[in-house]
Amino acid sequence: MKFIVSKKIIDNRALYMSVLWMVIFLIVALVLNIVAKGINFGITPEMWVNTVLGNEVEFMEPLLLSDLLLSLHTDLFGLILVFILMSALHIRSSRSKELKLTILLVSVISLLLYPVGLMASLWIGSFSILLSWSGFLLFHLLMIGSALDILILLVRKRF
């Protein structure tokens, strides 16, 4: 994907500005995604458990399987695209090879944990929702951190 990883990105003003704005919008999108998930599922792992599995004491119905699948399918579609874009940019940054590989590995594992944990909650229960919650949050924080790092490198023209 030479167009966003080319060393000449700084020289090409239109490309530079496009990538710069794309990174800013990716950060906003990721933050909004956390906010939207907080509204839909809740902020804490307990709130996620109540939303997905229901709570008899509070008269909360469990989430319908079709709603859970729809939410995961649409979420994952967007998050995979974010991961592809961020990894393409991240790979060519001036950070160490070990750091880049670690971030990519932890990101993809956390992104896998999010849907797997939620789906496994149908059989395992609340523990897997905790894993899913952790995966969702960790992936978003890593991607936001990487995007901010790339943004700083772009602004300083050291990308």
Partner: peptide, 22 residues
């Protein structure tokens, strides 16, 4: 990393298929 990514893509397809079936 590549294997994990492939697993992620397969999972996304399975979720899409499961949603359609449900």
């Amino acid at each position: 990393l590549a294997l994990l990514f492939i697993a992620l893509v397969i999972l996304q397809s399975i979720l899409g298929g499961a949603l359609f079936i449900v």
